[in-house]
Nucleic acid binder design. Structure first.
Length: 879
RNA sequence: GCGCGGUUAGCUCAGCGGUAGAGCAACUCGUUUACACCGAGUGGGCCGGGGGUUCGAUCCCCUCACCGCGCACCA
């Protein structure tokens, strides 16, 4: 017998360990079963589980468990990502606490420290995934810096280089002055800040005029190389080609005409600082002939360098800003500073202001690689759910910029490129090969590492053993579905598509399910700084992993963010408890899963009804999962278990089990036990722990079988059972109606009352007899009889053709009853009014489909009949 | 500025051409031996505003308003 209340904490780890030990998570490349492959988005190896993971992993686990039960050879490929910048930052911070830094320590020693940290914290997230109940094929777990995956990275780099798709270039990059590395556009976060817009005067070289410019970054004035105006601007047209002097540095620079300038913004004249601004750099390139200088002002860590006047050198860039303003003011070239709101780029990891910075970096020719990746989605080889995300994917790939893949970090895949003393580049997978290419020359390896996303872009095939032609690669590529959040469509999905299509000649996955972001109950994004982070592990502690999983699933409606509130989690914990208690009831009544069960042999309508309802529920779950409508799948099983099974079926059968029809009792016990067993299977992918626990308690099957390895049921042998379905709907209607009336009239719950039925059709009469025991119990009736002359002082309600009469004269509040009947009649009259409006409309009759018209007519007739009977009841009440 | 999404019961959200739904909250009743982490019942909605298409619109189209999120930005 189960305990009285369900305590998730007691059972979860026990079951998980048993599952993992059993080997059920393992894919089998040798099996002939159709594969089902999901690639886990690799979390940061040193990270810990947050709500986004909880959602993402729960959905993948549900799919994996479901398809595994369906007999597919399921591979859920797990692993972690080395997360270059994030991880290196953590370790650097640890060093800083001990007054150390990586440069003093040296590359080798530092990397040892990072690996140490990876070894310490690397297991955290994978053990947390186990707490959640995730069932990936753990022995296959990979790490992006594994030898195998690193080999894939080198192979890809070399091949793309030889194909001309990777090249080295000097361009402006987003430079992080704290991390001292380039970062990609995607790692830059634009924040709106309130700053100043400074207006300055640049005098003409010959003193014949002056021109006003405005800037938010006065410090860059020291590197100004030109002033640009719009070619059509009458105010300045005559000045184009003339020269002005940049005060403070006294540099003579040209005035150029460029369409990039907005005439109506600021003064209409823009200072051009080609080495420190992306737009200015473009202007510079368009005016190569004008001799605009490219001057770099900053040291890598954001201080003023030797290209500045001496008194600036070594100043922090923001201090320099103040000094420029002060110097201009002193020289009389300062006009004004006005408040101005504008966007400033910040490193999303480091949190410092990013500098556009002129450096040599490695690039992927993303534009070329994007073509086939775009085509793959356009042609439907890969499909997004919801489809609207395809727009996001297209938009980004269509406007893609060269992808800067080098990072001035140490933690990551060191770029397989070597240089000789003349700066000639040798790209090869190993140093030996590079040396061979270089001949007798001395070569040194590029110090930089690759962007983390470069290696994760290879994830769908590198984890399967590529570049070797492994059985896994053959069987599981391409994957069936990728489950991920919209925030990494650019970072990861698009790049996997580019790499997958290029190297495998085939998309990496057939479907991409994009799920929502988990927010707090107020709709705010969870963040440490806001302090609104809900830790999934806390929720697991408090309510159990099943409750958390079910909450995520039930709220995972397509195209909408999840606002997580603890109430919901509590509600689904209650759901688990409900099932738990239903099981206790089944145990007490000997309703355990029978060894054999043939749905076709089931006779009693309540039993036929519940069988049919199980089949419907399963169909709804399957549809929900194949269409990625997880919330609908969860809703179907929830409704069925609580509403269908507990509230109705178990209540229907209680009085029958108290009766003396032994054959019927046996059929009910078998059916109840069987349905409970089906519930455990159907619910298992969603709530694996509680279902496994119950299964272990009640199963009569051979010991050692586990729910997790059960087969997903096939209910095709269960008949439609239409007569039973209609009967039970009628029984439910009668019971609800009588209960409602009783409550309205304040009939004490304990009081049993008589029921008289007038105008019962033969079918109704028959039903009253056949379901008498159920009706009596569930509607709290002392007797059921028929009559032609109803007592006057009685409550009446009408179901179909028959009037149901509760002769409770002593309990009736006449006014209340009149009001109740009048309300019902009014509602029906309103309905008829609406229907008549339609039926009297010629165009409706002419255009609407026949079945709709017929439906309206029958609804009208039904309402009419009800009104007649209810009016009669009302009249009698008055008499 | 461009794009995407949202606006439905007090709250959180489903539904998305043909009688408005759920969960939670509220209220009433409840010792009928599975469950108070429960049961039964009740109330509560011009489905954001305005146009249009349609016999018929919460649902499709246009438009406006407000909210959220991307992308791009004016130096």
């Amino acid at each position: 017998m189960l305990d009285k209340t369900f305590n998730p904490a007691d059972i979860e780890s026990r079951h998980y360990q048993a599952w993992e030990k059993s080997g059920i998570f393992a894919a089998d490349p040798a099996s002939s079963n159709t594969p089902f492959c999901v690639m886990m988005p690799p979390p940061n190896v040193t990270g810990s589980l947050h709500m986004g993971h909880a959602l993402n992993m729960t959905l993948q686990d549900i799919l994996t468990r479901y398809y595994r039960m369906k007999g597919r050879d399921a591979l859920w490929m797990p692993g972690t990502d080395h997360a270059g910048i994030a991880t290196q930052m953590v370790v650097e911070r640890q060093l800083a606490e001990k007054q150390q830094n990586r440069r003093d320590m040296g590359r080798e020693k530092f990397l040892e420290k990072v690996w140490e940290w990876k070894d310490i914290s690397g297991g955290t997230i994978t053990s947390q995934l186990r707490r959640l109940g995730a069932t990936p094929d753990w022995p296959r777990e990979r790490f992006t810096m594994d030898e195998g995956l690193s080999r894939a990275v080198r192979r890809v780099f070399v091949q793309l280089y030889r194909e001309g798709l990777i090249y080295r270039d000097k361009r402006l990059v987003n430079w992080d002055p704290k991390m001292l590395t380039a970062v990609s556009d995607l790692e830059v976060e634009h924040r709106e800040i309130k700053g100043k817009f400074y207006h300055f005067i640049y005098p003409a070289e010959d003193g014949s005029f002056e021109i006003h410019i405005a800037t938010t970054r006065p410090e860059t004035i020291l590197a100004d190389g030109a002033v640009a105006v719009h070619p059509d601007d009458d105010r300045y047209r005559h000045l184009v080609g003339k020269f002005v002097v940049v005060p403070v540095v006294n540099r003579i620079i040209p005035i150029v005409a460029d369409e990039h300038v907005k005439m109506d913004f600021g003064s209409g004249a823009v200072k051009i600082t080609a080495a420190h601004d992306f737009n200015d750099f473009e202007v510079y390139k368009r005016h190569k002939d004008k001799g605009i200088p490219l001057i770099n002002l900053f040291t890598p860590d954001g201080k003023m360098n030797e290209n500045c006047p001496e008194e600036y050198q070594g100043l922090d860039r923001f201090k320099a800003r103040e000094k420029v303003v002060a110097d201009f003011e002193e020289l009389g070239y300062f006009v004004k500073a006005v408040d101005h709101v504008y966007q400033v780029p910040y490193g999303d990891r480091s949190g410092v202001v990013i500098e556009p910075y002129l450096t040599d970096q490695w690039y992927v020719d993303a534009k070329t690689m994007a073509g086939p990746a775009l085509e793959a989605v356009r042609s439907g080889k890969t499909e997004f759910f919801p489809k609207t995300w395809e727009n996001t994917y297209f938009e980004w790939l269509e406007n893609i910029q060269p992808w800067c893949i080098s990072r001035q970090l140490w933690w990551g895949h060191q770029i397989p490129a070597w240089y000789d003393d003349d700066g000639k580049i040798y790209v090869a997978e190993t140093e030996e090969e590079a040396q061979k290419l270089a001949g007798a020359k001395t070569i040194t390896r590029d110090e930089d590492v690759l962007d983390t996303w470069f290696s994760s872009a290879l994830w769908p095939f590198s984890t399967l053993g590529w570049p070797d032609n492994t059985p896994e690669l053959k069987k599981y590529y391409p994957g069936d579905v990728l489950v991920t959040g919209f925030d990494i469509i650019f970072f990861w999905v698009a790049r996997m598509m580019m790499m997958g299509v290029h190297f495998m000649k085939e998309v990496p996955f057939r479907k991409v399910y994009i799920h929502a972001l988990v927010r707090d109950s107020k709709g705010q994004k969870m963040s440490k700084s806001k302090g609104n982070v809900i830790d999934p592990l806390d929720l697991i502690e408090k309510y159990g992993a099943d409750a958390l999983r079910f909450t995520m699933t039930a709220m995972a409606a397509q195209g909408r963010d999840i606002r997580l509130s603890e109430d919901r989690v509590e509600g689904y914990r209650n759901f688990a408890t409900k099932l738990w208690n239903a099981t206790r009831y089944c145990e007490m009544n000997g309703c355990l899963p029978p060894a054999t069960f043939d749905p076709k042999a089931i006779q009693h309508p309540v039993n036929q009804w519940i069988l049919r309802t199980v089949a419907q529920c399963s169909a709804d779950i399957e549809r929900g999962l194949t269409e990625y409508k997880f919330n609908e799948a969860a809703g179907a099983i929830y409704q069925f278990v609580w509403g269908g099974f507990c509230d109705w079926y178990l209540e229907f059968t209680k009085p029958l089990l108290n009766g003396d029809d032994e054959a019927l009792k046996a059929e009910i016990r078998a059916t109840t036990g069987w349905v409970l067993d089906q519930i455990l299977i159907l619910l298992n992918p969603f709530m694996p722990f509680v279902t496994e626990e119950i299964y272990a308690t009640i199963t009569t099957r051979a010991s050692g079988t586990r729910l997790i390895s059960s087969n997903w049921p096939d209910y095709s042998s269960i008949s439609e059972a239409m007569p039973a379905m209609r009967d039970i709907a009628w029984v439910q209607g009668v019971i609800s109606d009588i209960r409602s009336v009783r409550a309205d009239m304040n009939v004490p719950a304990g009081a049993k009352i008589d029921l008289l039925v007038k105008d019962a059709s033969p079918e109704t009469a028959d039903r009253l007899k056949r379901y008498e025991v159920i009706l009596k119990q569930m509607a709290r009736l002392s007797s059921i009889g028929q009559t032609d002359i109803p007592p006057k002082q009685a409550i009446k309600s009408v179901i179909h053709e028959a009037t149901f009469i509760l002769p409770i004269a002593e309990l009736i509040d006449l006014d209340k009853e009149r009001a109740r009947l009048t309300k019902q009649i009014d509602k029906l009259k309103q309905d008829i009014g609406k229907i008549d409006q339609k039926l009297q409309n010629q165009e409706f009759v002419a255009n609407a489909p026949e079945d709709i018209i017929a439906e309206q007519k029958s609804r009208r007739a039904e309402a009419q009949g009800l009104i007649a009977k209810l009016s009669a009841a009302l009249d009698q009440l008055a008499a």
